[in-house]
């Protein structure tokens, strides 16, 4: 959008919404919505509390453990499905089902299998993130130009070299896209998991704040979470931009 001849970046409109939030909050128009300034000062206060800090450590640890697991398992699984037809035929259906199923319904199962603790959260992150990573990796492998594989074969590539020097690299744009979407889903997994377990990390904080109507802190925590989710997506997108040039060139 252009305003007075200047190109205003799209995300700048979020500032308009922030101002609107402040006004609505000041006027006390919507129940449970304190003004943004109050929320921000609550956020400043919140990040200094030990309970927030320890909750953040717990949350981040569970998130990254779950993500590492889903990448380490998801990428090889996707490559396997992309290269081996029988694996694709047998697993494809389930990966498709789980990638769009309401996985939040499975969190209660995770709770009884893994207990009311961090392991459940790790499992939830893993369960939310892995399927899209598998699907995208598989698609990336499927779309490698056949001539690139023939090229490697004609110059005598071993099986190992074929996978490490050609397939992994050629599928990298899609693998990264899958990981980015997986990270976004993983954030949702960690939040949903913690909300349902309700005694771990941010889930416990949300529970406390909303039970005691500490709305400024509730919103502050929400903003921190949103910012974290967007930051992660942005970082991966940067990495993707670096490989994008060759996604189009194939």
């Amino acid at each position: 959008m252009t305003l007075f001849g200047y190109r205003v970046p799209m995300m700048a409109s979020l500032l308009v919404w922030c101002v609107l939030w402040e006004i609505v909050g000041r006027l006390d128009l919507v129940f449970l919505l304190p003004p943004l300034s109050e929320v921000l000062s609550a956020a400043v206060g919140l990040v200094q509390t030990p309970s927030w800090q320890s909750a953040t450590v717990t949350t981040l640890r569970a998130f990254f453990t779950g993500m590492v697991l889903s990448i380490v398992i998801g990428v090889p699984l996707g490559i396997l499905m992309g290269r081996v037809k029988i694996a694709d035929d047998l697993l494809g259906m389930w990966v498709n089902i789980f990638s769009s199923a309401p996985l939040s319904a499975l969190v209660p199962v995770l709770m009884i299998l893994f207990g009311f603790g961090e392991r459940t959260i790790v499992a939830a992150v893993f369960l939310f993130a892995i399927w899209i990573i598998v699907l995208d990796t598989r698609a990336g492998v499927r779309h490698i130009s056949p001539s690139l594989i023939e090229m490697a074969r004609s110059y005598g590539a071993s099986r190992r070299a074929l996978y490490l020097k050609i397939i992994l690299w050629a599928a990298l744009p899609e693998i990264l896209a899958g990981i980015r979407l997986g990270l976004i889903r993983g954030v949702k997994g960690v939040v949903i998991g913690q909300l349902l377990v309700a005694i771990v990390g941010y889930g416990a904080l949300f529970e406390t704040f909303s039970r005691n109507f500490r709305m400024a802190e509730f919103w502050a925590l929400t903003i921190i979470l949103f910012a974290f989710a967007l930051l992660i997506a942005e970082l991966i997108e940067r990495a993707e931009a670096k490989v994008e040039y060759y996604a189009g060139a194939r």
């Binding site: 001539s147 690139l148 023939e150 090229m151 110059y155 071993s158 070299a161 690299w169």
Partner: peptide
């Protein structure tokens, strides 16, 4: 003893011209 030149070039887009040219030797 045989080397192939591809219709669609079959170059690795993530590698420089130098590495692409040297790739046959790299594999050896």
């Amino acid at each position: 003893e045989r080397a192939f030149v591809f219709q669609d070039f079959a170059l690795m887009p993530w590698a420089t011209a130098l590495r692409n040219v040297a790739f046959g030797l790299e594999l050896r």
